[in-house]
């Protein structure tokens, strides 16, 4: 299809080559190009510099650039592979690739582990899980007593912390997540399977029209 050929994808020239990104990921070249539509929209929503800033990420997720959310923060930090405070197009595509329906489960399990390992110690620790449960209750305007929260954390550790050392290591997490696939629900975005359908505007807008007018 001429309308989605990479030759015509001139506007992404300052970003990484879609062919390289397609080679490294589950996405085809035209899907990478369609993702550029989404990237462009998000990265121009506030700062218009072609990079996604945290506020823009929050705006895309919540329609609100000031909404503080522990998990959105974590996801943003994991997307920011170069740790420079912004997400460029290559980081965006490589990170979203983990959420592709056809990406191996092992990659999704590992990403979720890093998400939950709040302090990057290599383990999901009790205090981290406690903190995350509080955050989720807070986000949902739910109140539970400290005892009830402790109980949830205890229960979870009873199931996941197989060697009983008070922290969940990557192998324990792998076993636990494999046994409970519902835990990985958020790690698959069906939208990514038909990304060119989700962003038909790319197909309509791409090509010579904008470049030559």
């Amino acid at each position: 299809m001429g309308c989605v050929s990479s030759k015509q994808f001139k506007r992404a020239a300052e970003h990484e080559d879609p062919a390289i990104l397609a080679k490294e990921t589950t996405f085809s070249v035209s899907e990478v190009e369609a993702l550029y539509e989404l990237f462009k929209k998000i990265s121009h929503s506030i700062f218009k510099d072609g990079l996604i800033h945290k506020e823009e990420f929050q705006l895309a997720l919540f329609r609100n650039s000031n909404k503080k959310n522990l998990f959105a923060d974590r996801i943003f930090d994991l997307f920011d592979l170069k740790h420079n405070g912004v997400v460029d197009f290559g980081e965006f595509v490589r990170s979203l690739n983990i959420f592709h329906p056809e990406t191996p489960l092992a990659e999704k399990i590992s990403f979720a582990f890093r998400l939950y390992d709040l302090r990057g110690t290599g383990y999901i620790e009790r205090e981290e899980l406690y903190e995350m449960v509080l955050a989720i209750l807070n986000e949902s305007d739910l109140f539970l007593s400290d005892d009830a929260v402790e109980q949830i954390v205890d229960q979870t550790f009873k199931q996941a912390d197989l060697n009983g050392d008070g922290k969940i290591d990557p192998d324990e997490w792998k076993a636990f997540a494999s046994k409970n696939p519902a835990l990985l629900k958020n790690m698959t975005l069906p939208y990514l399977k038909d990304i060119t359908m989700a962003f038909p505007s790319f197909v309509l807008n791409s090509g010579v029209d904008e470049e030559e007018l």
Binding site: I42, V133, Q155, T156, N186, A198
Partner: peptide
Amino acid sequence: RTCNAFQLISSMSSGFDLSGMFESE
């Protein structure tokens, strides 16, 4: 049915649900 903290997070967190990003179209 036992309550599991990670289940709670994955079913309730809006920040860990990236679909919102695709629904703004």
